[in-house]
């Protein structure tokens, strides 16, 4: 199988370049990650992140043939050759396919991704009705792989100011949680031309999400909450 891989080692290379590889796959190499691991056997200078290899940890997010996705959940048979592998767009490259995710996590932390409730916790747990719990479906499953935010032009332009689809999905996850008491503060935190309203609903995030989530829908619901609060 033919590959064209983005290579960049800032300690040695003056500029990034694409390197071609040809890898002989075994019958058990079903997913792209298997192929990349095979590729690393051939050239151990290639750097990439991986961990769980089953689409749960979000480590091996990369740009595959021009589209963000997880290498471990992308089937080799679905890829056209040469398979072009690049790091996630819009984030600083540390080396080869590894990007610096600090900015992404900074935005995630800025929305306070944890339950805020000042009342004393009950003996067992804070309960929700099944209907209230249902609203959290499609929100809590996010694995923070950054495929969505790094596919978003608004995030490319303003990564320091726009929260990005992943962060906003998480923001709505807590806005939608009936156990959370900081709804108004959370909305105040997002009521900003940059933080929330840089989203122009182009839906690249929905298109690439490897978990099939819909950040655009969540962003729409945040806007709806703001309208309900304001009018």
């Amino acid at each position: 199988m033919k590959f064209s891989v983005y290579r960049y080692n800032p300690e040695k290379d003056a500029a990034p370049y694409m390197q071609d590889y040809e890898v002989k796959l075994e019958a058990t190499d079903k997913m792209l990650l298997d192929a990349i691991v095979r590729l690393k056997e051939q050239d151990d200078t290639l750097a990439f992140r991986r961990s769980c290899r089953e689409g749960v940890c979000g480590s091996d997010a990369m740009n595959i043939n021009g589209r963000n996705g997880l290498a471990c959940t992308t089937a080799v048979k679905d890829l056209s050759e040469p398979v072009e592998l690049r790091p996630l767009p819009g984030l600083p490259v540390i080396r080869d396919l590894i990007v610096d995710m600090s900015q992404f996590f900074k935005q995630y932390h800025s929305i306070k991704p944890y339950l805020i409730n000042d009342t004393p916790p009950p003996e067992k747990e804070r309960l929700q009705s099944p209907e209230d719990r249902e609203e959290l479906d499609g929100l809590y499953e996010c694995i923070l792989c950054a495929c969505c935010s790094t596919a978003c032009p608004s995030f490319w332009w303003n990564p320091d100011k726009f929260v990005g689809p992943a962060g906003l999905l998480a923001a709505y996850r807590f806005l939608a949680d009936t156990r959370d008491q900081a709804t108004s503060e959370r909305l105040d935190n997002l009521e900003d031309p940059y933080r929330l309203f840089r989203c122009h609903t182009i839906m690249n995030c929905v298109d690439v999400c490897p978990k099939g989530l819909n950040p655009t829908l969540a962003i729409g619901k945040i806007k709806e909450m703001m309208v309900r609060r304001a009018v």
Partner: peptide
Amino acid sequence: REVVGAHYGLIDWLY
């Protein structure tokens, strides 16, 4: 320092 939080946006979006 990076400053955000202009507290407008919704009304423009509605407009």
